[in-house]
Design a protein around this nucleic acid. Structure first.
Length: 414
DNA sequence: TCTGGGGTCCTCATCCTT
DNA sequence: TCTGAAGGATGAGGACCC
């Protein structure tokens, strides 16, 4: 029997689309080609979600407040985000990736990991596969992507960042340390502003410095979880495999208002709208939630969350709203005006129709919601909406789990 | 400078059950 | 019956990612 082909030493690819949202708009509208372009909210509280490379030349970056972006680049063109378009485009790109291997882990709309260790016989070495992926994305979708090639996911992701824009970067197994050592710690996955500042106080600015720091010192500064993670990745270790499908753990909707909200009736209406939005998404994915969390950001930017577990899982906006409203009503009076409201559903499981539970009681709200879904599918999303029931009384107590009342505890020290 | 939206994961406190 | 420990579930907040 012939010997099996040896596995490639760098079998993980990280494919990352370049300026994805902005590129989709520029591709589809000739007037936007080659101009400084930002996708995001252009209102007083908007931020940039994606910027073309022409805009980046002016210093415009994603997550930057739109007002600041406009100051940096007065000729900046803003377009509103269109997620249904990005989602459709993302599906086409993922089809290309899946044509090379079934081991594709989609991280977000614009990036994915591939394990190509088993694809060598069909498609050749990982570097060749990366080149073919880039070529097909360019010719079939008229879009640009960069690819990182490495022994594991964490290194592949760093490599694709290094490859940008429009390139390939391979981190060879024997050159991991040379690749990592000069990088600033901020480049590491899991190191944001706070962690970088904590490391800076220890005199650590590069990965080489991080690796030489005694483990005990790091643990005291960052806690055992994060310290262990950073020690591993500073050595280039990452044993996570490529996971093809992870079920969602949370479905949420939130909105920052152009002007802060104050009137309780208005706030309740917004909670209902957000609850409906979350419920529609739950139903579209065949899920139901047990726990409802509201998020409130006040005008002073302080943020609180309050959650409540219901007696039974639900996928109807009315039930989610009932729990959300109880949480809202329990907030202390005399609070500041509200800048942002959010509703999240967690504790997800299959919905009643998926479970076909014999003991399930018929839920009239659910029947109504399903009927409304049908109308929306047929006549469009705006065809039907819940009437102004926001000011109606909350659900009776047996609709929410009174065994787990809202508890308060001290805020965590930071 | 003035901070979006949709997520995941982690830590810690508290409650409840065994 | 009481007590304490251990561990799971829940709730709140924070950091981080794209």
């Amino acid at each position: 029997m012939p010997a099996a082909d040896p596995l490639p030493p760098e079998p993980i690819l990280h494919v990352d689309m370049d300026a994805f949202y902005a590129s989709v708009h520029a591709r589809d509208d000739p007037a936007l080609k080659g101009v400084p372009l930002a996708v995001g909210g252009s209102g007083p509280r908007g931020v940039v979600m994606s910027a073309s490379y022409e805009a980046r030349a002016y210093g415009v970056r994603s997550a930057m407040p739109s007002a600041r972006a406009r100051r940096l680049c007065p000729d900046l063109t803003f377009v509103a985000p269109d997620f249904s378009r990005y989602k459709a485009e993302s599906e086409r790109v993922m089809e290309i990736l899946f044509s090379f291997t079934p081991l594709v882990e989609q991280l977000s709309l614009d990036e994915a990991f591939l394990d190509v260790s088993g694809a060598a016989r069909l498609f050749g070495e990982p570097a060749g596969i990366a080149a073919r992926i880039r070529e097909r994305v360019r010719t079939e979708r008229d879009l640009i992507c960069s690819v990182g090639i490495a022994p594991n996911k964490f290194l592949a992701k760093l490599a694709s960042a290094k490859a940008k824009p429009d390139g390939i970067c391979r981190v060879e197994k024997d050159a991991v340390r040379a690749f990592l050592d000069p990088l600033p710690v901020e480049d590491l996955w899991g190191v944001g502003e706070q962690t970088a500042a904590a490391l800076g106080r220890l005199g650590v600015r590069t990965v080489a410095e991080l690796r030489t720091l005694p483990g005990g010192v790091l643990q005291r500064a960052l806690g055992p979880g994060l310290a262990g993670h950073l020690i591993d990745i500073a050595h280039g270790r990452d044993t996570r495999g490529v996971v093809v499908h992870e079920p969602a753990k949370q479905v949420s909707a939130e909105e920052t208002f152009d002007t802060d909200l104050d009137a309780p009736a208005h706030i309740r209406r917004e909670l209902l709208r957000l609850s409906e939005r979350v419920a529609r998404r739950l139903r579209s994915e065949g899920l139901a939630a047990r726990t409802v969390t509201i998020k409130v950001r006040y005008a002073n930017f302080s943020t609180i969350t309050r959650s409540r577990t219901m007696a039974e899982p639900s996928d109807t906006g009315t039930r989610l709203y009932a729990a959300a409203r109880v949480l809202y009503e329990a907030l202390p009076p005399g609070r500041p005006r509200i800048r942002l409201l959010g509703v999240a559903a967690t504790g997800l499981g299959l919905s009643a129709s998926e479970q076909l539970r014999l003991d399930a009681r018929p839920d009239p709200w659910r029947e109504t919601s399903l009927a409304m879904d049908k109308v929306r599918r047929r006549f469009g999303p705006g065809a039907v909406a819940i009437a102004a029931i926001a000011d109606a009384e909350p659900m009776p107590p047996n609709d929410t789990n009174e065994k787990t009342p809202v508890r308060r505890r001290r805020g965590r020290k930071t």
